[in-house]
Design a binder for these strands. Structure first.
Lengths: 116, 116
DNA sequence: TGGTAAGATCGACACACGTCGATGTGACTC
DNA sequence: GAGTCACATCGACGTGTGTCGATCTTACCA
């Protein structure tokens, strides 16, 4: 049985994630590609740390990510975009700052797809 | 609190996986690197399908993977090695054939690290 | 209007990775 | 021992990705 959650990104686009559980039955190519795309967003140490920082707080400003991550501003911006495109975090522009928060439902959907 | 499971690979090496949950607190670099390494093994559509085929059966022979995956023998061998190195599957050589089975504990550990 | 500050985008570079033909390595059969 | 089969390893190729300096865009303030 497919496990899907609706996720709303910065641009208000919604999309599905994802996929029967890996352990239940052989995945078809489309489901495998979808799931691999989300996992690729997670499969980077900098993005994992970024996500953990955002998830540990109700809201985090981009400006508070550069120092803990030890990466340049363009690099941090790149990683927030990847995580946001994957639906794992969402950003809200307020004035000059962008505030990020985690989407725990998305993470839960991934756990389910991984046989949860 | 760290979530660890011992995993035994083909070469009898054992290692730990892994890591406080991403959602609990900011990950340090070492934990993030460990988790990213395992997730990288999963973040490929061919390997996800391979794992789902192996996990759906008590045991699968390498020779029964080429056709469903539509990949050459060296490519399949490469992917089984990546999954085995990550502890997600284990292989046993019997005569001319290698038989693979999934390690559900490892997948469960990843789910926990993902905030399960 | 001009200046500054936060963040996104661009361009370039180095490196990692998926893929497959060719070849190597054991194991089985005759 | 010769031949064959299953699988691993090697080498090479094209592509994808993380990184950062430079630049663009937008918002705020004097």
């Amino acid at each position: 049985m497919p496990v899907k959650t609706k996720v709303k990104a910065l641009d208000e686009r919604t999309y599905d994630v994802c996929c029967p559980a890996v352990t239940a039955a052989p995945l078809d190519e489309a489901d495998a590609t979808d799931l691999a795309r989300v996992l690729s967003a997670l499969a980077d140490p900098v993005r994992l740390r970024l996500l953990s920082i955002v998830a540990s707080s109700p809201e985090v400003c981009s400006c508070d990510l550069e120092n803990p991550l030890g990466k340049s501003q363009p690099t941090v911006s790149h990683h927030t975009k990847v995580l946001a495109d994957a639906g794992l975090i969402s950003g809200e522009r307020r004035g000059k700052w962008t505030w990020w928060h985690a989407n725990p439902d998305r993470l839960a959907a991934i756990r389910t797809a991984l046989g949860g």
